[in-house]
Design a protein around this nucleic acid. Structure first.
Lengths: 249, 249
DNA sequence: CGACTAAATGCATGAGTTTGCAATATTTCT
DNA sequence: AGAAATATTGCAAACTCATGCATTTAGTCG
């Protein structure tokens, strides 16, 4: 096996698992640990990975938290975020509503991804401003101070002029019969707009909100394309959702 | 599990919970408390956390990249902020540009004041969202990540539809002959708009920037109404400014 | 194709890291 | 003050690393 092949293999492992161990690579690739160490050193100099005692870590520190968290307790929101991040493709235009789940998503978008993100949430914008290659467009308007999001007619106007590939929507409540609902009238209106201008709408929904119904209607269940929750998509609770054609992730 | 992974995990926990306990980490990560203590000590030396008896506390470093700069000459900016806050009257519509000086102002606006503030700076908006009676309108647009302000045509458009009583403008450079100047073309354009729509324009200017000239022209010195610096208004350096009719505060 | 060269590899050795444990000291809380 | 929890220190075992050197391999040139 050629050196470059090994390097490629190592980088691939890193992409997948975020860390590699010298011993593990040695057995996997049937070369001595010395060789692995030399490989790692070389790749470290090239800044393609981060060498540490015993192995190496992915340069992309953001995703590191994934493995770590999976060890103990991954919060529901983080579980959702990690599922959501897989939907993002390079070059897409994405709308993100304001919600703590979307904030969790913003935190873990790998720095390798390039995209344009529209948002009206201050915390999400701040978070994304640390990302090297994501273009952020902030949707202005009157500030709702408690939620730290902008609302109002300006937001609706701006959104209606967007065309988005993907929409990550925080969810007030969702049910098969009542569709997507929100406790706040203005937010409900804004979300309706978001759905209108997005090719693929994903509802990010922590499990307690499944089957919940809030005061204001957003869209029927057919209006959204997929739902991401912290549960396994095979859970029976999703059967009725699947019958409507919804993708459960 | 590699040491660096543990470190990452610890920092992550801190981000989330603000504090960690040695005992808790020990069980979560299945290593001895000694190891945890060594980890914490190491991270403490690196100033990534603050070690205390029994665990560690987060060093609150949100917005670090931006606020770092405000630490530099905080004194001067606070002096300016305190002078500026006296100009604010109840019920006014105020435009605030993005700058660390304006951030300092946003932090000290007394909660007794009622006003409407337009801004295109994320940190200022976040800061003002803690204020009970100030209505905040955020001006949307493409995000400049390093300055954490929105820029571009949307910002200019929005501003040109405002009528403001008061405008607090951060200052790139100011001189009697060259007027107000900016190092960034887009920002220069935006500030020009701000001046156009504001009845009373105040330039917030730390003393080193007096007499400085940047690349892009904003408005002549007559375009602004007052200048606030960290110096005494009686300093001789202001004589030539006063001759133009400018108020020095 | 074959021979040569530079790179790559594996091994041995000694040095460096990391970790857990035990003994001792310090801090915290009652 | 005294008990309990937490820290520090020194140390040994296990593991990992850097280096030099002999050997093998890949790639090149005639």
């Amino acid at each position: 096996m050629l050196k470059q092949e090994r390097h490629q293999f190592i980088l691939n492992e890193l992409k997948q698992y975020r860390k590699v161990l010298s011993t593990g690579l040695s057995t996997q690739l049937s070369v001595s640990e010395d060789t692995i160490r030399r490989d790692l050193k070389e790749l470290d100099v090239k800044k393609l990975l981060y060498k540490v005692h015993g192995g190496a870590l992915s340069i992309d520190k953001k995703l590191l938290s994934y493995n770590e968290r999976s060890i103990s307790d991954l919060g529901k929101k983080e579980i959702i975020a990690f599922k959501a991040v897989d939907l993002i493709r390079d070059g897409q235009v994405i709308i993100m509503s304001g919600s703590t789940t979307n904030l969790a998503l913003a935190k873990i978008i790998p720095s390798s991804i390039t995209a344009t993100v529209f948002t009206y949430s201050l915390p999400i914008a701040i978070e994304l401003s640390n990302h090297p290659t994501i273009e952020v467009i902030f949707i202005g308007g009157k500030l709702n101070k408690t939620a730290q999001v902008t609302v109002g007619i300006d937001v609706v106007n701006t959104i209606s002029n967007i065309r988005a590939d993907l929409c990550f929507m925080g969810t007030g409540g969702i049910s098969v019969k009542q569709g997507v609902t929100e406790p706040d009238w203005e937010v409900a209106h804004i979300k309706k707009c978001m759905v209108d201008v997005s090719d693929y709408v994903v509802s990010m929904c922590v499990s307690p909100k499944l089957m919940e119904v809030k005061k204001f209607f957003v869209v029927p269940i057919q209006g959204i394309d997929a739902i991401i929750t912290d549960l396994e998509p095979t859970e029976p609770i999703f059967d009725i959702y699947k019958e409507t054609g919804l993708t459960v992730i």
